[in-house]
């Protein structure tokens, strides 16, 4: 049911933005899907399976990104990645982040 192409806009809401750990979570999750997944910030579009590319996006708190997936599990992929943003990458009072 989830095959095809899908995109959704998300906003970075965790105060620290997409630094190493969130980028790690995104890339790891993205690599579990067969679809091609990208993140777009303005005119910059990168491969969501590459942590280094994600870091070069410099997605700070408040940035809007478009999550796009194309492939057999595009629907699950977009849901999964957006979910990470919604959960603030598990950062917050319950999940202290060292430095």
């Amino acid at each position: 049911m989830s095959a095809g192409r899908l995109s959704r806009t998300v906003r970075v809401t965790n105060p620290e933005g997409v630094h190493a750990r969130p980028a790690d979570m995104i890339a790891k999750l993205a690599n579990r899907y067969h679809s091609q997944i990208s993140l777009t910030k303005g005119s910059l579009k990168i491969d969501a399976k590459s942590i280094l590319s994600i870091l070069t996006l410099v997605a700070e708190c408040g940035t809007e990104l478009v999550v796009e997936a194309e492939g057999p599990d595009a629907h699950d992929a977009v849901n999964g990645i957006t979910e990470l943003f919604h959960r603030n990458f598990d950062e917050g009072p319950d999940h202290p982040v060292p430095n």
Binding site: R21, D24, K49, S50, I51, S53, H95, P98
Partner: peptide, 19 residues
């Protein structure tokens, strides 16, 4: 575990297929 997160990120960078 949370203190080891940075190494986790390093590992993902090292395995970055694009790299």
């Amino acid at each position: 575990r949370q203190y080891a997160a940075i190494f986790e990120a390093h590992l993902t960078m090292l395995r970055d297929a694009r790299l």
